[in-house]
Design a protein around this nucleic acid. Structure first.
Lengths: 228, 228
DNA sequence: CGCAAAAATGCTGCATACAGAATACAAAAG
DNA sequence: CTTTTGTATTCTGTATGCAGCATTTTTGCG
């Protein structure tokens, strides 16, 4: 049997020396990925002994990581019965998107006020790169750049709490968005909305940007609602 | 020396059998209270050995609770150096209030749409009770009811994510609000704003309620800004 | 007396060990 | 055949022990 733990392998695949980051962070990120990517499906019990052996760590740091994720809302703690991967209902997703929409609208307005011209130029560059990935049909890279753009706009709002909360909701929804693989025409529409977003940002059109961001997320809901 | 741990004493002061809740929850709540009430000041290192002995628990569950709080943003984890109580700058507080304002405005709108007449009547009752505490000069009870009313309006929005995020920010700000002990005239103004809030809710006046909630939080910022 | 290097101390990070609760299974009674 | 109860197993919750890192103190040398 392979004696190298899963964690080591993943860490080595990164850059530079092995395990720069503390084990706690590594574990948290790894478990988060496992949940987002569906390796641990909703409702799955997180078996400490088994999972620990699989990852090559003892139960102590594993439990700490699980508690951390519990506070992030990705897993649910059941007294004396451990932790299970949280299951999100359709309403849960809708609720998250409602809040996310509001936050992005706020972020859009603030970004128009606060972003430097350089910041905006960088966003345009990211956008162009994303469109290139779209044209190439590279869904995975498109998806990554898409997320980066949304996070980027929020970052331009210069509000750390806003970034933090946005990041948290984005993470919870990642799992869902993986499911909602939209068709070609919807994908094109999403790209068009992104074009609108960047244009509004360049024009520093607060209400315009907020409107597009809101519409974009409403459409996201339309895209995934059937998949849940 | 008193052999009963601090945790036991606090638990016994509750209702029913001792320690209904799991130790994890008890610890998290206790530490959270210690931070909010200023017993653990910002910048304080959370000394595992010492703190554990003081609370009468071993390091393991204590560490798990600390990790939980770290994800809530109340403490900061520093690799190989443990955890410290997070210090919030004036900008941090302003950022939180900006987000909180946006969330409450959203909640106000949704509450006007979704709340039942009974729900609204209950809010009015809470409000009247709060005004009574104000007239009696009972700051602590006033403060508690105040928080309950804000949480209540958010709850009426029927959006669990909204409630959760709101609760998180409210918790982080509690520590700050404890400082901002407003003067008599500002207190009166705050009560007046609350009266407006309830009236707007009863009239199901979405924009009116959102406006008051926003103004209320802006004023909250004015009240605490000098104290930071 | 000042400074640097090295030892010593204290704390965190992780692993392991033990106790108690929950569940699964089996056997017996209705 | 179903239900119930006793027992065994498994997993969680908590305590403790050990190793490594950070910091501080002490000691040796200029």
């Amino acid at each position: 049997m392979d004696n190298t733990s899963t964690l080591d392998r993943r860490a080595e695949s990164g850059h530079g020396p092995i395990r720069r980051t503390a084990l706690h962070d590594t574990l948290v990120n790894h478990l988060r990925d496992m949940i987002i990517e569906g390796e641990l499906e909703p409702g799955t019990r997180l078996h400490e002994g088994q999972l620990g052996e699989q990852l090559g760590v003892s139960r102590t740091p594993l439990r700490e990581a699980i508690k951390f994720l519990a506070s992030e809302g990705l897993v649910e703690l059941i007294p004396s019965r451990g932790a299970v991967v949280k299951r999100f209902s359709a309403k849960d997703v809708q609720d998250m998107l409602t809040v996310l929409r509001n936050l992005e609208e706020l972020a859009g307005k603030l970004a128009c006020q606060l972003a430097s011209d350089t910041d905006i130029a960088n966003m345009r560059r990211l956008h162009d790169e994303m469109v290139a990935r779209y044209r190439a049909g590279d869904r995975l890279q498109y998806y990554k750049l898409n997320q980066e753009i949304h996070s980027g706009i929020v970052r331009l709002a210069g509000n750390s709490t806003l970034s933090e909360v946005h990041q948290m909701l984005q993470t919870r929804l990642k799992r869902i968005r993986f499911i909602g693989h939209e068709g070609a025409e919807k994908w094109a529409a999403a790209v068009a909305e992104h074009e609108e977003m960047i244009s509004a940002l360049e024009a520093r059109d607060e209400s315009g940007l907020a409107e597009v961001l809101g519409r974009h997320l409403d459409n996201a809901w339309e895209r995934v609602r059937s998949a849940i």
